[in-house]
Each structure stands twice: as C-alpha cells, then as structure tokens.
C-alpha cells in the first residue's frame, strides 16, 4: 500500500514541474494524431526506448554513482531472447519478455558479483569488457544466427498481432512503448524514495560511511544493477519485435552502451527526469545526424565527436547535468 502510494506520489516536485510534465505527457499521447512523418514516429519510438534504457542505467549509474558502460549487453539478451523464442517456438512477446528479463537478471548477478569488487574506472572498464565479450560470443553462436543475426519475418504473422507484438503501423508500437515508458517513470519514482534508493545515494557519497550505517554496499549495488538490467532487457525485447532484424552489432555495440550512459548524464544522473531529458535531446540529434550523414559518408563519426564534447562539458561544468543546473538555479532563488 505504502509502496503504491509512494510510486504515484510526485508531490515533492514543484507544481510547475508537474504542469510541464503533464502537458508533455498529453502532447506525447496526442503526437501520433498530428500526422507525423514516419521518420518522426520512428524517432519518438527510439526516444521512448532510450528513455527506458536511461532510466534503468540511472538507478545504478545515477543514484548509485557506478558508471556502467555495458548496458548494451542486456539490450542484446532481451532482444535475442524474444527473437529466438518467437522464431523458433512461436512464443509470444508477453512470455518471452519476462523470460528475457529473468535471463538478463541472472546474467547480471553472475557478472555483478565480481564486477562490484571493482571501483571507479576499473568498474567502468570491466562493464565494457563483459558487454563486448557477450557480443563476440553472439557473433559466432549459430543458434542465434551468429553475425547475420535473426530476422522476424512479419509475413508469417497476421498483424496487428498483440500477443507477438507484430504490427504494420508504427502507431501500435508507439503506444505500447509509451505505456512502458510511463510505467518506468512510476517505478523510478518509487525507487528513488525507497530504502534502496536512499542506500545508493549514501553509497555514491561515501562507501565507508554507508557501511557504518548498516548498508551492505556490495549487495545493494548488485540488487540495483539487476533492476537496471531488467529495465534495459524489457526495452530490448521490444526492440526485437519493433526492428524485426537484430544483429549483435546493432544491439550490443559499445556505442549503445555509451549513448545510454551519456544521455542520462547529460540530462542529469541521479534525478527522475534526467534520463528523459537526455534522451529527448540526444535521440533526435542522433536520428537527424544519421539521415544527414547518410548523404555525406565522409563525415561518419561526427556523432562520436559530439558525444565526446558533451562528456567533456558535463564533467567540467556540471556533473549533475541539465537537471543539476535547474536545481542549482532553484536553490539560489529560494535562498534569496
């Protein structure tokens, strides 16, 4: 009961935030009816997916301060579980998605146990390594199509298929991922106020102090890492049904891991809205750059340069990202 109440209680945000959030939510709900281009629809769906990845990352990376650069491996586990189960055994999304989530969480426990013996940069590098190892493995594993990947052929099904999440029109995908997005916000809103959420913020601040306050630091990190993983895996499963053609390269590459972390950091690590703000900026930018660069092959890689610039600016100017700036300005106003 209390849990549910906390999850839907946003009252610690100023009224103005809630009004803005409400208006934006309505706009997002109405968006498909404004006859957007298919490019715009696709970009919005990517925005929701990356917001969910980012919200997941934000639990361990933002609230917990453990910079995780290996989230893409869970996009992969989620996507591959759903694709394999559908293609081989015709098992619908609503079954394969929780199965993928369980597999992801199990994998996160296995690697989380040793990973969280590491601190700071060593941790970040180790997460990259585990993700790349998994990608390499999938690239040679025939059962999952090796480097060719897997293809869900829509011809075999009868869209709209709500069980298998096979649709011809993006509008269905849009509303389904929008619902996941809203559920994610509600969950994180509970999480940030929960005991675990408080423990993580204490851990981020000073681990010795956290331990002296009765917090089992290692276990708290592993648990949170599993939560982060579950978020990413769910959106990964969705990715399989939506994209229909998955390869190790576009589900598990380092770019994706970095983009997930970067978005959350740009928007504001350790805040509810941060990852969403970050995705709202970077995903349209990325889509646009991709279109634009399609015509100018010589400029491939410019997106990486932009990411690098963003990282430098954030770490030098405001480690708490855009939301950090908003909060700082507010505090200053209040003190006057």
């Amino acid at each position: 009961m209390e849990t549910l109440k906390n999850a839907f209680d946003f009252s610690d945000f100023p009224r103005s935030d809630l009004v803005v959030a409400g208006v934006l939510a309505l706009a997002l709900a109405a968006f498909p009816f404004l006859s957007p281009s298919s490019f715009a629809m696709a970009t919005m769906i990517q925005f929701f997916m990356f917001s969910i990845y980012g919200m997941g990352w934000n639990t361990i990376g933002g609230y917990g301060g453990q910079v995780d650069l290996g989230k893409a491996q869970y996009v992969g586990i989620g996507a591959y579980t759903t694709a394999v189960m559908l293609i081989r055994w015709d098992i619908p999304f609503w079954v394969s998605m929780p199965v993928g989530m369980c597999l992801s969480v199990m994998w996160s426990f296995i690697i989380g146990y040793p990973l969280f013996r590491l601190k700071g940069h060593y941790f970040a590098i180790a997460t990259i390594a585990t993700s790349l190892v998994l990608k390499d493995l999938f690239e040679v594993w025939d059962f999952v199509g090796a480097a060719r990947g897997l293809e869900i052929s829509p011809i075999k099904y009868h869209p709209p298929d709500f069980l298998r999440l096979i649709f011809r029109d993006d509008i269905y995908y849009y509303y389904i991922i929008f619902a996941f997005f809203l559920a994610g916000i509600v969950y994180i809103n509970w999480f940030r106020k929960s005991r675990l959420g408080f423990q993580l913020r204490s851990i981020k601040d000073n681990e010795e102090v956290a331990r002296s306050l009765g917090i089992n630091v290692h276990w708290a990190k592993i648990k949170t890492y599993a939560i982060a993983t579950a978020f990413v895996s769910v959106a990964g499963s969705f990715h399989a049904c939506y994209i229909k053609n998955i390869e190790p390269e576009d589900t598990m590459s380092l770019d994706i891991s970095i983009l997930i972390a970067l978005m959350a950091m740009l928007g504001g690590a350790g805040s509810l809205w941060g990852p969403i703000i970050g995705a709202g900026i970077l995903i349209p930018l990325k889509s646009y750059l991709k279109e634009w660069l399609g015509a100018r092959a010589g400029l491939v890689g410019i997106d990486l340069i932009i990411y690098a610039l963003i990282i430098m600016v954030i770490s030098a100017k405001e480690p708490r990202g855009i939301w950090g700036i908003v909060e700082r300005v507010r505090r200053r106003k209040r003190r006057r």
Partner: peptide
C-alpha cells in the same frame, strides 16, 4: 554528510 541529500534525508539513511 551526503551532498545531494538534505538534512532530513541524510538522517533518514540512518
């Protein structure tokens, strides 16, 4: 004490 928590939240961690 933890920088991004206010006083009450710091005590709540305990």
């Amino acid at each position: 004490a933890a920088g991004d928590l206010n006083v009450e939240e710091n005590v709540m961690v305990g």
